[in-house]
């Protein structure tokens, strides 16, 4: 197995007095798709946001391509530029058109020319099926379309890995599949990714491994087939039986 793109070891985090991550570890190798699932409030989103330093943590360490995220000397913008992130609520910039949303970071972080950045953005919009929406504003798009733009925006930085924080939780049911299709396609192309999601169908189809979190701990971290067929921890059995019933 090649060196991990993302390696988290014993990450602990407190929000004030609340101990929200209690020694979380996870290793993501190049090309691997890891799904993190678990009940609300289990710390999944917080954990994934620690991976690119959006959330500080107090103990343990996280290495991205060997660079320590928590180290004060680390150039976080540089590190983040190599890790794409997609949020639950899309977080497109409302004052910028679709194409400007996508070209902003390539132009200001990678110092690409506008023309070059726009060419790349158009190619990505075709890839997510929104070639005709380049001049639209976020508010003019459906939730599913906004999330696909957000994925294109993250891909525009040509990341080595992608983090998805509940990418379909804020979507109407009929739009979930259009977003999952794009993410699944990325997975099939070999993108390294960590996906926090409740979509167990997606996990079964696309994930190499599934990690189950509850109350700030990673209770289980196993190959997808094993996880679904024979979950070890009692807590994940219960979770699966509830979530798979419908």
């Amino acid at each position: 197995m090649s060196a991990a793109v993302i390696l988290a070891e014993g990450v602990e985090k407190w929000f004030g007095a609340a101990h929200v991550l209690k020694g979380c570890s996870l290793s993501v190798s190049r090309g691997e798709v890891v799904v993190i699932c678990g009940p609300s409030g289990s710390g999944k989103s917080t954990f994934i946001k620690c991976m690119n330093g959006l959330e500080p943590f107090q103990r343990g360490r996280i290495l991205v391509e060997g660079v320590s995220v928590g180290e004060p000397a680390t150039d976080l913008p540089k590190l983040r530029a190599r890790i794409g992130m997609v949020f639950q609520h899309f977080e497109l910039y409302p004052h910028k058109s679709v194409i400007e949303n996508i070209t902003l970071a390539p132009m200001h972080v990678l110092k690409r020319s506008r023309g070059e950045a726009e060419d790349g953005a158009r190619a990505l919009l075709r890839r997510v099926g929104l070639a005709d929406k380049d001049r639209a504003f976020p508010s003019e798009l459906s939730g599913g379309q906004q999330q696909r733009v957000a994925i294109a925006r993250a891909l525009a930085m040509e990341p080595v890995a992608m983090l998805f924080d509940e990418p379909t939780s804020a979507l109407d049911p009929e739009m979930i599949s259009e977003v999952l299709d794009v993410i699944g396609q990325l997975a099939a192309e070999g993108m390294t990714m960590v996906v926090v999601t409740h979509e167990m169908g997606f996990a079964r189809a696309a994930a190499d491994r599934v990690a189950f979190m509850d109350a700030g701990r990673v209770l289980e971290d196993r190959p997808t087939a094993e996880f679904f067929e024979n979950p070890e921890a009692g807590r994940s059995k219960m979770f699966l039986s509830k979530i798979l019933r419908h």
């Binding site: 913008p77 540089k78 992130m85 977080e91 910039y93 902003l104 972080v109």
Partner: peptide
């Protein structure tokens, strides 16, 4: 603005001053 706007800007590799200026 939602906290997510700043997080999205930072996650894309913008520095904090850039995130303020551009977003």
């Amino acid at each position: 603005l939602s906290r997510g706007q700043l997080q999205a800007a930072l996650a894309s590799g913008l520095t904090l001053p850039q995130a303020y200026r551009l977003v």
